[in-house]
């Protein structure tokens, strides 16, 4: 077996009395697509927040590519090659779509150097190539505030990809997206991620999406991992069905 690219051991964190992580162990191999599922409040986003440095775990360790990254600030973790997208997309609302992506392209490269415009030829080309990969070329000059939710999600992920990450953590890439669009969006972004060889972890509520795109599923429940394995096996497990899918069906109709 190959060494894991991202590895969490015994992660614990509690907010007040609520244990959002109560001994999380998870190894992610290079190139894997791992879906995280589980009821609301199970600690799925908390895992992303700890891995990206927004929250410091109260116990446990996170290793990335063999090096410990536990408790580093977000910006050093980003610099090491772990990027994320958000449940509510974090776009720079003052800027257009291409400027948003260009800012991240520049952030990864020449940010502190020189007075060349943000959208110089080189950055604009890189940004535009990313937008094309994500099917966003048409909205390049639209303001970030004018987009629909699906486009905002894709822009957010394209921005994360501009940082050239090796691991991308996505928080509910299809939530708030019309169900007719969800496969289109997932097809686009999975193709783009595979093309760049990026390892991905995504929190997801939609079981159809999980079945179709995940190599492996990890089921979260009350800060613990209830089960993990290939979607076909895990999603057929009665315990998982009881814990997650019961809640999920309700959620999907809400």
């Amino acid at each position: 077996m190959t060494a894991p690219l991202l590895s969490a051991k015994g992660l614990k964190i509690a907010f007040g009395g609520v244990k959002a992580a109560d001994g999380i162990d998870l190894d992610i191999a290079p190139g894997e697509f791992v879906a995280i599922i589980g009821p609301n409040g199970a600690g799925k986003t908390t895992f992303i927040n700890m891995t990206t440095g927004y929250l410091r775990p109260q116990a446990g360790h996170i290793h990335f590519d063999g090096a410990e990254i536990t408790g580093l600030p977000p910006r050093s973790i980003v610099r090491r090659g772990i990027a994320r997208s958000f449940q509510i997309p974090q776009l720079f609302t003052e800027h257009t779509v291409i400027e948003n992506v260009a800012l991240k392209v520049a952030a990864h490269g020449r940010f502190w150097r020189g007075l060349r415009p943000l959208l110089d030829a080189e950055t604009a080309t890189t940004a535009m190539r990313l937008l094309e990969q994500f099917g966003l070329a048409d909205v390049a000059t639209a303001r970030a505030t004018e987009l629909n939710e699906g486009t905002r999600k894709l822009t957010d992920i394209a921005m994360a990809m501009a940082l050239k990450p090796r691991v991308l953590l996505m928080d509910e890439p299809t939530s708030g997206v019309a169900s007719s669009e969800k496969f289109g969006i997932m097809d686009t972004l999975v193709a783009a991620l595979r093309a760049e060889g990026v390892t991905a972890v995504f929190v997801e509520h939609d079981m159809e999406v999980v079945e179709r795109y995940a190599d492996r599923v990890a089921v979260w429940s009350q800060g613990k991992i209830l089960a993990a394995g290939p979607p076909a096996t895990v999603l057929a497990d009665p315990a998982v069905l009881r814990e997650v899918i019961g809640v999920e069906t309700k959620h999907a109709h809400a």
Binding site: R84, R110, P117, L118
Partner: peptide, 29 residues
């Protein structure tokens, strides 16, 4: 020079401090 600065990535990042600066942190800045 100031107009060049404002158009550069650094200048363009200034408004992000006004609205939500954690976005910069997650860009590694």
């Amino acid at each position: 020079l100031a107009s060049r600065f404002l158009a550069s990535p650094l200048g363009q990042a200034l408004p992000a401090i006004k609205t939500r600066e954690t976005r910069l942190e997650f860009a590694g800045i």
